[in-house]
Computed example of a mutant assay.
Amino acid sequence: MADQPGRPFLYVVVCAAGNAGDVGELITAAQRRAWEVGVIATPQGLGFIDQLAIEAQTGYPIRSAWRRPGEPRPLPPADAIVVAPATFNTINKWAAGISDTLALGILCEAYGSGVPVVVLPHLNEAQAAHPAYSQSLQRLRDMGVLIDDRQPSPPNAGGGAFHWERAWELLATAFPR
């Protein structure tokens, strides 16, 4: 399945949240829509996913660290990016232009490259109440990032069901048919 010409390529950036282990649902949905998928995990996000299963499903290695000079690029360029689940930490660092992980570096470069980005936040009400969060969301929106408006969960509630399909509803605005 990997690297089939003519198929759009989706990067899925996975952060450290309890529902990250279900990212295969998003990958399956992308593949049904004839997208190829590569996963980029934050360093902490790696511990929340089944790396072997995802690599088997996508046909690509999961990226989490920068490649060394001279190493080939393991993924084709992205046609779109979905950040899901997107944590408080990642959203705020990205909006501030902090690029201290591969995932954040890719997100920071997406703006300058014109790659459409969709974000499905996953945080609780206590985190969302912090003033930096609303400021970060506004900055990302001003950059053209498409952000799910799902309400944060109550603290210690476990987050509830995650709406992976919302990524496709938002991406449809960037890729009208």
Rank of each mutant, 00 (worst) to 15 (best):
E125I: 02
A56K: 15
D100Y: 12
Q138N: 12
D3V: 06
V83N: 06
A41D: 11
V115N: 08
I98C: 09
G159Y: 01
C108Y: 02
N156W: 00
P176E: 11
A56Y: 13
P77D: 12
T42E: 08
R68I: 01
N19F: 06
G70M: 01
F88D: 13
H163C: 06
V14Y: 06
P43H: 11
L46A: 11
S136Y: 00
S64Y: 14
G144A: 09
S99Q: 14
A129Y: 00
R7Y: 01
E71F: 01
H163T: 02
A95C: 13
E25V: 05
V145Q: 06
A167E: 07
A53F: 13
V117K: 05
P76W: 05
L10Q: 06
A167W: 05
L52D: 15
G97T: 13
S134E: 12
G6V: 01
F9C: 02
L102A: 13
E125Y: 01
A78H: 12
A53R: 15
I40E: 08
T28D: 14
A2L: 04
T87K: 03
R7H: 10
E169G: 14
F48T: 10
G97C: 13
G47I: 07
Y60V: 03
G158R: 00
R68T: 09
L120E: 02
R33K: 15
E25M: 04
F175R: 14
G59W: 04
L102C: 12
S153E: 00
R166F: 02
Y11K: 08
I98M: 15
G114E: 05
P155F: 02
T173Y: 09
R32L: 08
K93P: 03
W66K: 11
I91N: 03
L146Y: 03
N92A: 05
D22Y: 09
N156L: 12
L107G: 07
I147K: 04
D148N: 08
D148E: 08
H130T: 01
I62N: 10
F9E: 04
L140C: 03
W66M: 13
A65E: 14
V82T: 05
W94V: 07
V39H: 10
S134Q: 12
M1C: 06
V119M: 15
L46F: 10
A96N: 13
I62F: 07
R7T: 03
E165S: 13
Q138H: 11
S99N: 14
A29H: 03
R139E: 07
S134D: 01
C15H: 08
G144I: 11
G105W: 11
W35T: 11
N92E: 10
G158F: 00
A110W: 09
L107N: 07
A56G: 13
L52R: 15
P8D: 07
Y133M: 14
Q44I: 13
V117P: 07
L146F: 03
V117C: 10
